[in-house]
Design a protein around this nucleic acid. Structure first.
Lengths: 120, 120
DNA sequence: TGAATATATGAGCATATATTCATATTTAAG
DNA sequence: CTTAAATATGAATATATGCTCATATATTCA
């Protein structure tokens, strides 16, 4: 039993099904990128930031105050959200206003919200 | 400038907007649970497992073979998916068949998929 | 130009997590 | 009962990550 081969014998594997499923799998790169996207959503602070931005564009300072977190922590997370192209920003003097940059986020969150409510 | 208070002065904060946004925020517990859900989606292995289950119910052995990973690794991740109530299982002798247990997953993934494709 | 303010960022630390390895558990078959 | 096979699981390790702290950058205003 090596690492590469499965633990079970070929006779027990459903070879045909596995082959067919493998053919219909999306490209590995897409699955990786999808996981990366959800990883961004997988943090309470970022979720909270995005929910504030659902309602209104807001500056870093406002967000930090609203969520009762340090400016630094918020800024770091906004950087992550920017990297994932989920938010955009505009500068007005020294103030930087962040807003949503994707119309899928709300739909994704709504679906997730339904899941966590129905599983109880 | 303490940790608790924001970095900026009250005059620069948009107090009214912040107050209104705060009132319309979903309960903290729901945001936490939502983040926990997306955390489960935020791993390539689990994403790959779920995509195989979109197509067909499958045993642990099949999944490990299909994804070229050890049985142990798959089993650990299936445990996580089970904990999130995303998959169910049925036993047939020593073989355990896993399948999807939530109709929102596909919708969530489809939306995410659109995001990662459109952002290029 | 100099002080003040809003934001960004790098380093460090504490924590979370994905995989491996060894082993336990469960069930079938002889 | 004994062996074999499929799955589950605990411990350990390596890596990733969120926050803090200190500080840099950028912009306004006097």
């Amino acid at each position: 039993m090596t690492e590469q081969s499965p633990c079970c014998e070929v006779t027990v594997i459903h070879e045909d099904r596995v082959k067919q499923v493998r053919q219909n799998m999306p490209p590995e790169e897409n699955l990786f990128n999808l996981a990366e996207l959800f990883k961004v959503f997988g943090d309470t602070t970022r979720i909270r930031i995005l929910y504030t931005l659902f309602q209104s564009e807001m500056c870093v300072c406002d967000i930090a105050y609203l969520l009762d977190m340090t400016q630094s922590a918020i800024s770091h997370q906004l950087r992550v959200l920017k990297g994932a192209k989920l938010v955009r920003y505009r500068k007005e003097g020294r103030v930087v206003y962040y807003s949503l940059d994707d119309e899928h986020i709300k739909a994704i969150f709504d679906q997730g919200y339904q899941h966590i409510q129905e599983r109880n």
